[in-house]
């Protein structure tokens, strides 16, 4: 069993930011067409504002007591420790499925028609087990390389689409309240990073308030840019497509070099890989099994089994990709439980 070495809090927030950005990479018809670009922009602000609120209990725990929920749970009695560990394990496995299912679907539909989704899931999970065993510190180091790849891919996507920008008729402020609420719900999805922080903040040092704010601001900027190019470069055509953001990599054009799907697929693959590996780390940490190959592989096998079953049953597929359900569980994981531990710690002190 390995003991994690404390590492920079800045690095963890950069990794969390990349995880949050993956939400829009896998976007698929979850945004209401009744809202214009400006209304969607407001939804981004609202969603990420809620995300900051979700971070608060874990940040207060870190700032005031330099600890996290998992450390406090382990110091508490056995029943409470197990209850917390089991809840977080189920939550993180649900979240991992939430990303794994759309990713494998996108890979098979858009890039490699005919490949069985389960085989893709197996390949991703095999790599994730390896990374999760190595630990959070190593995964966040990988995040540095991913950050550079994300910069290159986004530059290619946006610069290549800039030549087809059309502003006629798209500039109107148009939207309904239900569309705004639906889209805000979509942009609350990245709050799952707050739940990851709840479990992993204990490993980090040198926390400052600027770190979560910068991470959320950069995530918002990425979302805004994607929404801008989808609205003004792809236009109405994007509304007919599955995985709208993927379209930006197809219309990106640099002379004879048209389409940069491979860059896009590489970025989304690595993002899903990083999210799943981090979630496996969090699951193991709840049971104090960090670095244990057998248990990490067992959790990954459970993920694969659920993915395999979800392929057979559409209802299960819809359940695991339900954003409202994820947001509800995230509220409990990132706000309710950490707040309860915070209050308990205050009383104890």
């Amino acid at each position: 069993m390995k003991t994690e070495v404390p590492f920079s809090s800045k690095r963890l927030f950069m990794t969390l930011m990349l995880c949050a950005c993956a939400v829009i990479l896998l976007q698929n018809h979850d945004l209401s067409a009744d809202a214009s670009f400006w209304v969607n922009l407001l939804s981004v602000f609202a969603g990420l504002g809620v995300c900051f609120f979700y971070f608060l209990p874990a940040i207060i725990l870190k700032k005031k007591y330099n600890t996290d929920v998992m450390t406090l749970a382990n110091q508490a009695g056995t029943p409470l420790k197990w209850a917390t560990a089991v809840f977080y394990a189920l939550y993180f496995l649900f979240t991992a499925e939430y990303f794994l299912i759309p990713y494998t679907d996108m890979f098979c539909k858009k890039y490699y028609a005919g490949a069985p989704p389960c085989l893709i899931a197996l390949a991703v999970l095999a790599c994730c087990v390896y990374a999760a065993v190595k630990g959070v510190n190593v995964i966040t180091r990988f995040g540095i390389f991913l950050f550079v790849l994300a910069l290159v891919t986004n530059f290619l996507m946006f610069a290549g689409s800039a030549s087809s920008l059309r502003f006629e008729e798209n500039l109107a402020f148009r939207g309904t309240l239900s569309a705004f609420l639906q889209n805000s719900g979509y942009f609350i999805t990245p709050c799952f990073i707050a739940a990851i922080y709840v479990c992993l903040s204990g490993y980090t040092r040198r926390f400052t308030w600027r770190q979560p704010l910068t991470a959320l601001a950069l995530t918002g900027l990425k979302y805004a840019l994607v929404l801008f190019f989808i609205a003004f470069s792809a236009g109405e055509y994007a509304g007919r497509q599955e995985y709208e953001t993927y379209l930006l990599s197809r219309v990106a054009h640099f002379g004879s070099f048209a389409g940069i799907e491979s860059f896009y697929m590489a970025l989304s693959t690595m993002s899903v890989f990083m999210i799943t590996a981090l979630l496996l780390c969090c699951t193991c940490r709840g049971f104090q099994l960090g670095g244990n190959v057998k248990w990490t592989a067992a959790f990954a096998a459970l993920l694969f089994f659920v993915r395999f079953i979800a392929e057979k049953f559409d209802s299960l597929n819809e359940l695991f990709t339900n954003a409202a359900l994820l947001n509800g569980f995230t509220f409990v994981a990132a706000v309710v439980i950490p707040s309860a531990y915070l209050i308990g710690r205050k009383k104890h002190a």
Binding site: K109, K110, A113, A234, Y237, R240, Q241, E242, L247, R250, V251, H253, A258, G259
Partner: peptide, 10 residues
């Protein structure tokens, strides 16, 4: 054609 995943929009 807009519904065909393999078709290139450019």
């Amino acid at each position: 054609i807009s519904t065909q995943a393999s078709f290139s929009p450019v």
